[in-house]
Design a protein around this nucleic acid. Structure first.
Lengths: 207, 207
DNA sequence: GGGTTGCGATTCTTGGGCGTATCGTATACT
DNA sequence: AGTATACGATACGCCCAAGAATCGCAACCC
């Protein structure tokens, strides 16, 4: 899924005059993501974005009319550096879950999207457009990897057929999100293994 | 645990002059909580708090020097309307978990602390004092009820001894928090039962 | 009753971001 | 060459909140 920037849609690529610098688009979107993590949505200013991107305010306003469309666009273009690999043929469901969640904790690290997500949460409860962009562009994308592994596990007979994959996915990601956003607790590979094993085996005592 | 307001600590309750109106303290703290949910931490203004509380700006500044101590104090005094009842003698661990999590989804509703928590998340990643107040005053308080039930379940032999109660508590609350803060999905009693049963039984297929 | 402090309301200065306009320069099309 | 648009930089008026100061009145102590 490749989304052309609103800027490119609006920009007349034909006709006279100096063409827009595509490098400016990239620098602005990158600066927006960075500052979202550092300042949050409310604290984000167009002036700050322009300064961080090394461009003039004019260059920002020529492309985006205000903060909201800019942030929505930045989120649409945001990609984790790498997606987790699909499960290998011989890989067990447990190992695949550990692997994809380990990938997730790196992606949610403070230098990655963790701080950015925190900066967006407050505004998401007010701003429907923004919330939709985050959900479809980031949250659903990441949950889809867990869905795939769980459904494959059901096919393989390693996972019960009656489980609700959405709920299980949230139970797997929940402790990581809780720690990153709320408790500030440690997010380690050990936590991931613990979560996966607890999820597979349950907590009920069996005699 | 009762925390006297910073205002009361500072206020000279003895000596000459008109005493401070304790109703003003309560109105200010309540307005702060309300506006945190509506505007978020960044959007919260002292002027807005004074207006909502029906007091003058002077009355706020006489008690708190700035926004951060005010919000920290408001959180320290924030109490959910009611805490969940402790587990009854004959109650199963499953029923107790369903009951306490059902209580939790009400407490995290939009008219309760759900929006307030969303409004705080961004600032918590920057503001250590605020983060500590939220964690010790709200998050830990609520987790403690789940801890108690899990540890009781271990005593009763209904829960395995080797589980990590912190991780399990986050796995139980995770789907609720994820939906409230990120996905906006439905938070229903059915979800709670689903989460608890999935947690107890696990998802691994057993022949 | 005099001294002291709290009250709501209002005024004032300061600071910063918004969004527009304008500059001289750069780079494209025709 | 001529025209049109983009560029970074800057200046501008506007608005809003911070935080201090002041006012007349209220409530408490001695």
């Amino acid at each position: 899924m490749t989304v052309p920037p609103q800027a490119e849609i609006d920009a007349r690529t034909k006709g006279p005059g100096r063409p827009r610098d595509p490098e400016a688009d990239r620098a602005i979107l990158r600066a927006t993501i960075e500052l979202l993590g550092e300042e949050g949505y409310e604290g984000l200013s167009i002036e700050g974005v322009a300064a961080r991107a090394g461009v003039g305010k004019t260059t920002v306003y020529r492309r985006w009319p205000s903060k909201e469309p800019l942030v929505v666009d930045a989120i649409k273009h945001y990609k984790s550096p790498v997606d987790p690999a699909p499960p290998r043929e011989e890989e067990s469901t447990r190992d695949a879950l550990v692997r994809v969640l380990s990938h997730f904790i790196r992606a949610m690290g403070p230098s990655e999207s963790g701080r950015m997500m925190a900066g967006l949460v407050a505004e998401m409860s007010r701003n429907v457009e923004l919330a939709r962009a985050v959900r479809t562009g980031i949250v659903e994308h990441r949950r889809s990897f867990v869905f795939a592994i769980l459904e494959r596990g059901i096919e393989l007979g390693e996972i019960r057929r009656d489980v609700d994959v959405e709920v299980v996915a949230d139970m797997l990601a929940g402790p990581i999100v809780m720690r990153v956003l709320l408790t500030g607790g440690a997010v380690t590979p050990r936590l991931v293994r613990n979560v996966v094993d607890t999820m597979l085996d349950g907590i009920a005592f069996r005699s």
